[in-house]
């Protein structure tokens, strides 16, 4: 290996990862839903930047004006939580979730196809159960025993309806996750066995 003490000029250094990979290349098996999730992703990504801004604002208010906000920490937590939840769906659509591929790598095309289909189906069923359970949770977080609509709040002085909103968002994401795995299963089944191998692992 080259061990020259003088480094190559910067242009020659390959980037650590393909920087544009984050904005495009949804695997074909994810279908149209995959593209929609991909299109939506910048909105939730922006939430992390907003969370950063909110924390800086809080530090500023507390330190310069001695007037800490009551909403900054709840809001940052909420924004991050929404990002984390959506991030799971985003990774599923782009097939970016971490896998241990020992068996998979040794498998022939037929077994690979079977594994791809099987994993998608199992994940779809699991997501379905979770979506159903999330629905039960959402009912408790949005409707009071007396039947009124009341989004569960944080209970603080700011008292934002973040818990209620987050639970609803989790429900929606789990439903989309189930649908995503459904389409992946269908598309893996339609594909010829070879195409399963060029997916990201």
């Amino acid at each position: 290996m080259a061990t020259s003490p003088i480094d190559p000029p910067h242009e020659d250094i390959p980037p650590a990862i393909d920087q544009d990979a984050a904005t495009d290349d949804v695997p074909a098996v994810s279908g149209r839903l995959g593209h929609i999730v991909n299109k939506l992703s910048p909105i939730f990504a922006f939430g992390f930047l907003l969370a950063m801004g909110v924390l800086i604002f809080e530090i500023f208010m507390r330190h310069v004006f001695n007037d800490p906000t009551l909403w900054a920490h709840e809001t940052t937590t909420f924004l991050s939580a929404v990002g984390f939840v959506f991030g799971g769906l985003y990774c599923a659509s782009r097939d970016k979730h971490i896998r241990v591929v020992m068996l998979y790598d040794f498998a022939g095309p037929k077994l690979r196809k079977a594994l791809d289909v099987g994993i998608s189906v199992v994940c779809m069923i699991a997501s379905g159960f979770f979506a159903w359970a999330a629905w039960l949770m959402v009912k408790r977080a949005t409707i009071t025993p007396s039947g009124d609509i009341h989004l569960e709040t944080t209970g603080s002085a700011f008292n934002a309806p973040y818990p209620g909103l987050l639970k609803v968002f989790l429900l929606l994401t789990l439903i989309l996750l189930m649908v995503q795995f459904f389409w992946q299963a269908i598309n893996y089944m339609r594909n010829t066995p070879v195409t399963g191998s060029d997916q990201t692992k």
Binding site: R62, D67, L70, A72, H73, E74, S156, A157, F158
Partner: peptide, 15 residues
């Protein structure tokens, strides 16, 4: 939290 805010303190909502 509310009571301390009313008493003039600056409550911070850290965990």
């Amino acid at each position: 939290q509310q009571v301390f805010a009313a008493a003039g303190a600056a409550p911070v909502n850290i965990p």
